[in-house]
């Protein structure tokens, strides 16, 4: 767990965000603040609005009300690529890799903001194009080593087993060199060993690479072990926020969420 300074340095501030789909109020005046360098988890039953919140932060959905600030700058209303450029990366719940590409190219494709050459230079593939490609490749290879996926770098991602795809999904987000990562259910559908590996990666990303991690996860063990702060959503409403210990003891949370963990874990698989 990251060591936090006393004075709160909020990197991401979500304030009174609401969004509805038809009659469904997916988010209802949700506010939360993520400190720089922490692991911040968002939990809640299926359909609580966790993924929707990520979509609002990342700009894929436009919140109908409220404000979302990243490093003091309003990002609500900005397009996803602009938000990505500011340093927010996303690993999707339902793997959203580029299936027709190799693992290497998936990671390389996330380096778009770290290469500056234009079309003409690409067509001749000389000078700046060549040197930037090599530099980006160096960076991507670091991530490949970190995630221990050297053996599959030239494999098409579509043909990989689920657990590895999840890892590549994480790697692609990491390849953006983000300041903050939105990671949606990184261990869903994984076995124990894969879950432990993933927990290790998340910790290293947070502690060694100094990336703020916002995590959505149903695996309570993982959330309680890793998180500095936990927020609970239920039917689009934030019902609690606090340290993992506080959350585990909160009666409302237990009623809304923890009490029905068993049934949900079956749904997850």
């Amino acid at each position: 767990m990251a060591v936090l300074k006393d004075a709160p340095d909020y990197q991401l501030e979500v304030e009174d965000v609401s969004i509805s789909f038809g009659g469904i109020r997916a988010l209802n005046n949700v506010s939360l603040s993520v400190r720089r360098g922490e692991i911040y988890s968002i939990i809640g039953p299926n359909g609580a609005g966790k993924t929707t919140l990520f979509n609002c932060i990342g700009g894929l959905y436009r919140a109908q009300k409220g404000s979302i600030k990243f490093e003091g700058k309003e990002i609500l209303g900005k397009k996803p690529p602009e938000i990505a450029r500011l340093g927010i990366a996303r690993a999707f719940q339902n793997i959203a890799l580029f299936e027709g590409m190799t693992v290497l190219d998936n990671l390389m494709s996330a380096r778009i903001y770290h290469s500056n050459y234009g079309l003409l230079r690409a067509a001749v593939y000389l000078g700046k194009c060549m040197s930037e490609e090599v530099r980006n490749r160096d960076k991507v290879e670091e991530i490949i080593d970190f995630l221990d996926i050297q053996a599959i770098r030239k494999t098409l991602v579509g043909s990989l087993p689920y657990g590895l795809q999840k890892r590549v999904e994480l790697g692609r987000a990491l390849a953006m060199d983000p300041k903050l990562m939105l990671i949606d259910e990184p261990v869903s559908g994984m076995n124990l060993e894969e879950t432990e590996d993933m927990a290790r990666y998340l910790l290293d990303i947070n502690e060694e690479m100094k990336v703020t991690v916002v995590l959505v996860e149903h695996d309570m063990g993982l959330v309680m072990d890793l998180s500095d702060t936990v927020t609970v959503l239920n039917f689009g409403l934030k019902i609690a926020e606090g340290s993992p210990k506080d959350i585990a003891a909160n009666p409302e949370v237990i009623r809304a969420y923890l009490g029905e963990t068993d049934t949900r874990e079956e749904e997850m698989v």
């Binding site: 996803p80 690529p81 990505a84 990366a89 959203a96 890799l97 580029f98 299936e99």
Partner: peptide
């Protein structure tokens, strides 16, 4: 290719 395979993820990647 990113746009062909997953346009939403492509956008989120920048």
């Amino acid at each position: 290719v990113a746009i062909r395979d997953r346009d939403i993820a492509a956008e989120a990647m920048g």
